[in-house]
Design a protein around this nucleic acid. Structure first.
Length: 574
DNA sequence: GCGACAG
DNA sequence: ATCTTGTCGC
């Protein structure tokens, strides 16, 4: 191994290592159609399969090579740098760190220079040669050794006296659990500095949404990035073009929050963000040393401020062996049931729900996205019991032209959320989703009794159903929630646009479903445009004001409620 | 501060 | 969503 002789006498420092066979190296060369430089081949012979603690931040084992190639292709294909690297200069992407990719050029040089690519237009020389790169990274690791953190015998948990925990135990936690641990530290810090009175609803629920299953981590990362203290408190004034995910008033509230907060707390927010986004691009490899690195910084920060750490036991429920390292989804409530003691009530249920809407509304698709004219059209409706907290959901699937009932399903349960205008879907979704699970024939499209984007935050029940079920969805409401309109003409089929308050944005259609009968309100739920949605709803309005889907679903929901109550009563009397 | 507010 | 009561037009 002439290129790495200087490493040979300290191989055991790196923990578990394993090299590639010559066959594997040849296979890589033919897979990527490149002649690899000798220095890199030497590296692979020593560390290609498993590189232990050497270069932990970089994910440089051969299993990651295709992922790196795919990522570069996804992001940069068609750009000039990509074409040059790919075709004429034979760029080879051998590792990544954060969002940056490392590559060299296979131009016959046996120990080529290493480059760092952050964006197509942002490529920089990193080290003069591959061996120099390894050498310098080793020095950096000695200054800031993750491996020491991992194997440290130091006991960190004053609060957790009965079960002694070492820092190394964090490596068995899933990424979701690490993010959650970081947020818990943040909550403890807020409480310690007596900052509970500030408006934490602006950031905490959004942070917590990471651990729940409905979240798209890439969108989470984008949203949190825009809410970073460093971004909000920077000298650049608010610019609508740079901010996709909130309005000016939210920006001003965030500014207030971070100004009244302190540096430690703001730094903790940043570190949680880093843990959550670290493995976004290439997945969780081994124990994800870089997220541990940030966790280590959090722990250090907590110690410097003499803050107690959360007990680690509840987090152990979510090991890194599940869900490819991300861990099984869970909520803050799950943690507190398992022993996490939240500092205080830092935000309300409604703030959490609104934060969820802010995330999910970005996933709504406002154009037609279904293969053929929909044949099986579903209706959904929910029935309430006046005398109890029972709620019954029904979904019915109709054949479009004959209106024959192809399938239906119902579910009766206790209500889980109060009626709050604007948060309606959180009340009606649970029984509807439960009914959906029981449905034998899934529809092409669903019409919901409530609004879609005709909603203050553009995320009504129909959007929530559509996005959650990944199904084209239409909102069809009986009364207005928001927006303004001119009365449509009196004849069946006439319609007028529903316009957003304070703008000309079209958020729905006011549709005369029967001649001289009060109009109904149609809006986009998901994967459909407003004109298609309007014509589908009109087609389902045969003799009555409401579409048959809604009417029949209503009937089944009422039936289900009666049946459930009857069964419950006889059960009690015996 | 007040009104409006899907089911 | 739920309830009750009354009125209008067919």
């Amino acid at each position: 191994m002439p290129y790495f002789d200087f490493l040979l006498d300290r191989l055991e420092d790196f923990g578990e290592i394993a090299g590639c066979t010559e066959e594997e190296i040849t296979a890589i060369e033919s897979q990527f159609q490149l002649q690899l430089p000798e220095a890199y081949k030497d590296f692979l012979r020593l560390f290609g399969r498993e590189s232990g603690h050497l270069l932990e931040p970089y994910a440089m084992t051969i299993d990651n090579l295709q992922a790196h190639k795919d990522e570069v292709t996804d992001m940069y294909e068609g750009t000039e740098p990509y074409d040059i690297l790919n075709f004429s200069q034979k760029g080879f992407f051998f590792g990544h760190m954060d969002d940056m990719l490392l590559f060299f050029i296979c131009n016959g040089d046996d120990d080529p220079a290493v480059y760092l690519m952050e964006a197509p237009e942002d490529i920089n020389a990193y080290e003069s040669s591959f061996t120099r790169f390894i050498e310098l990274e080793l020095q950096r690791d000695e200054e800031f050794p993750i491996s020491h953190f991992l194997h440290s015998p130091v006991v960190f948990f004053a609060q957790d006296a009965p079960s002694i925990v070492t820092a190394g135990d964090f490596k068995d936690l899933a990424i979701r659990a690490r993010v959650a641990f970081g947020i818990c530290c943040l909550e403890y810090a807020i409480s310690h500095f007596q900052l509970e009175e500030l408006n934490w609803a602006l950031i905490l629920p959004l942070l917590w949404s990471y651990t729940a299953d409905t979240v798209n981590t890439a969108i989470w990362g984008d949203q949190i990035a825009e809410r970073m203290p460093s971004a909000i408190l920077s000298d650049y004034p608010f610019d609508r073009k740079d901010i996709m995910w909130f309005e000016l008033d939210t920006y001003e509230q965030l500014q207030q929050l971070y100004r009244q907060s302190n540096e430690t707390v703001n730094e903790l927010i940043y570190l949680v963000f880093r843990i959550g986004t670290q493995d976004l691009h290439t997945g969780v490899s081994r124990h994800s040393a870089q997220t541990l690195n940030y966790l280590q910084k959090i722990i250090r920060l907590m110690h410097e401020n003499r803050l107690e750490l959360p007990v680690i036991t509840p987090f152990r429920q979510y090991p890194i062996t599940e869900y490819n390292g991300w861990g099984r989804p869970f909520t803050r409530e799950d943690l507190s049931n398992a022993g996490y003691k939240p500092a205080n009530n830092l935000w309300s249920t409604t703030a959490t729900a609104i934060a969820q809407q802010a995330i999910l509304t970005q996933q709504v698709i406002r154009y037609n996205d279904f293969p053929a004219p929909p044949v099986f059209i579903a209706g959904a409706d929910v029935e309430y019991d006046k005398y109890s907290d029972l709620i019954a959901g029904a979904i019915v699937v109709l054949e479009r032209s004959t209106l024959q009932v192809v399938a239906y399903a119902t579910h009766c349960m206790q209500v889980t959320f109060p009626y709050i205008p604007g948060l309606f879907s959180f009340r009606e979704m649970p029984p509807l989703l439960a009914a959906w699970e029981k449905l034998s024939q899934k529809p092409d499209l669903i019409i919901c009794d409530g609004h879609g984007i005709a909603h203050p935050r553009r995320f009504g029940l129909a959007c929530h159903m559509g996005v959650t079920l990944n199904l084209p969805a239409i909102g069809c409401g009986k009364t207005r929630l928001c927006g303004h309109y001119a009365m449509p003409a009196g004849e069946k089929g006439a319609s007028s646009p529903l316009l957003a308050d304070g703008s000309d944005e079209v958020i729905g259609a006011v549709l005369r479903s029967q001649t001289r009968i009060n109009p109904i309100f149609v809006s986009i739920g998901h994967k459909i445009d407003i004109s298609t949605a309007t014509s589908v709803v009109l087609d389902m309005c045969r003799e009555f004001r409401l579409p048959e889907t809604t009417r029949i679903a209503d009937q089944y929901a009422r039936e289900a409620m009666e049946a459930y109550k009857a069964a419950h009563d006889t059960g009690q009397s015996h």
